[in-house]
Computed example of a mutant assay.
Amino acid sequence: MESAIPQNLEMKRSRHKRVPDDYQPPYPSFVARYKPTVSRVAMAYFGVQYRGTAPTVATAALAEIAGTFAKESGPSHWDRARYIDQVGHENVVSVAYWDDIARFDAWFAPAREAWTGKARDGIGTFIEVLRPSLARHETLFSSSDRPEGVAAIAGRMSGEVQEHAYWGGMRDRIPLSQTDAMAPGGNPELIRDGTRLRVEAHDNLCLIRSGQDWSDTEASERKLYLDEVEPVLREGMEFLRDHGLGIDCYGNRYMRVLAADGSVSEKSYGQSWWKSLAALERWAESHPTHVKIFGAAMKYLSTLGPSAKLRLYHEVTVAAADEQFFEYLNCHPKTGMLAAVETASA
């Protein structure tokens, strides 16, 4: 059994794992393995926001960013998803991934100006970027044959890993956790650049993207997931969306992934910004909304056993202050990290 931490990032621990060295997880899970030359990745969320039916200008903007992704130095992988936010706005988010920071930097400056440098009637646009070192990042997959998100740019998937299926496994998979508590430092600040609003967050801001794929399920399993698990998951995601600030979740999006033709797929993911990894851990371990999600998932998996075809994954990043970029144009004040600035100034 492998360690989730790649060999080149292993170091002498000053902070111990939550489980002993002979721990055996009850079921298999896997992590993304990057090429040895990769030390940092970039993940960029490009969002468009509007009310009601998509105006022509929103459709044009989405086609524009897709074309920009296809240019030289564009991402190795990208996907698109949609959701309705807490004030009823439709948001369509295209998230792109790079494993070459020089290539990303060459691409980003003109792409940024094109996306948030000009106002478009009737819509808002935003950019949220992290460019973490691999020491600040982890992934986890229930199966190894269908990478999603940032894992789609990794060289391969691991064999079965040890650090999962216990509270604290998420932290133990992050290489920096071997020596660093990754505590948050500072408060978010708002920077005005003409009509553009930028948020400078703080050290050790945490991002999680946690996904579900039920496209392989057959009739009975699909019904069980959609009737018994998904409503509980949605309830938890909506709690974080509407009330997360009280538990240090700056913002949450529960999104349906869109297929290449724009139709809604049988995939979803939650994507949220947290003040710290510790805040995310507290919600996961003890908050009633996540305890309910965990209970529904365990009942589902124990009912189906190894025959379950639902696929689960997540990616978690704890980013240094200089690895973050947040910019918003004509978006409402609860959009993404703008909510964190509202909280800080309240």
Results as ranks from 00 to 15, higher is better:
268 S>E: 10
305 G>M: 11
321 A>V: 06
74 G>I: 10
175 P>I: 03
222 R>K: 13
85 D>Y: 05
92 V>C: 06
132 P>T: 08
155 G>H: 09
170 M>Y: 01
260 A>C: 01
112 R>F: 10
307 S>A: 15
37 T>N: 04
62 L>P: 06
291 V>F: 04
15 R>C: 00
127 I>K: 01
55 P>G: 04
330 N>Y: 00
222 R>F: 08
305 G>W: 10
331 C>E: 09
57 V>I: 14
317 T>M: 12
279 A>E: 13
27 Y>W: 05
242 D>H: 07
26 P>A: 14
61 A>E: 12
216 D>R: 15
212 Q>D: 09
159 G>R: 05
337 M>L: 15
54 A>K: 11
322 D>V: 07
3 S>V: 01
209 R>K: 10
271 Q>E: 15
249 C>R: 00
238 E>N: 07
166 Y>G: 06
170 M>W: 04
18 R>S: 14
290 H>T: 03
284 A>Q: 07
190 L>H: 08
31 V>Y: 00
315 E>T: 02
220 S>R: 12
93 V>C: 08
164 H>K: 06
27 Y>R: 05
241 R>S: 14
72 E>L: 10
339 A>I: 02
65 I>T: 01
332 H>S: 13
190 L>S: 07
240 L>A: 10
282 R>C: 00
49 Q>E: 14
154 A>K: 11
277 L>M: 12
233 L>I: 15
40 R>V: 04
174 I>E: 02
339 A>T: 02
20 P>Q: 11
88 G>V: 09
223 K>Y: 02
161 V>H: 00
274 W>P: 06
116 T>V: 15
223 K>G: 07
161 V>T: 09
48 V>D: 03
314 H>M: 10
267 K>R: 15
112 R>H: 12
143 S>N: 06
75 P>W: 12
55 P>E: 07
161 V>I: 15
203 D>A: 11
75 P>Q: 11
273 W>Q: 02
216 D>T: 08
108 F>K: 04
47 G>M: 03
16 H>F: 13
206 C>V: 05
37 T>M: 02
114 A>G: 04
339 A>S: 15
213 D>A: 04
129 V>W: 00
101 I>M: 11
258 L>V: 03
208 I>P: 05
275 K>W: 12
308 A>R: 09
71 K>R: 15
117 G>R: 02
173 R>F: 07
327 E>M: 07
28 P>I: 05
237 M>L: 11
286 S>M: 06
133 S>H: 12
152 A>V: 11
261 D>I: 07
261 D>K: 08
29 S>R: 14
32 A>R: 05
216 D>V: 01
153 I>W: 08
253 R>C: 06
22 D>W: 13
244 G>Y: 00
298 M>K: 11
292 K>P: 01
290 H>K: 09
73 S>H: 14
233 L>S: 07
37 T>K: 13
60 A>S: 10
245 L>H: 13
164 H>V: 02
341 V>Q: 01
337 M>V: 08
266 E>V: 00
54 A>M: 15
40 R>L: 00
86 Q>F: 08
317 T>P: 00
105 D>V: 15
22 D>K: 11
136 R>Q: 08
105 D>N: 14
144 S>E: 09
169 G>S: 13
142 S>L: 00
163 E>S: 05
275 K>L: 14
13 R>P: 03
30 F>K: 00
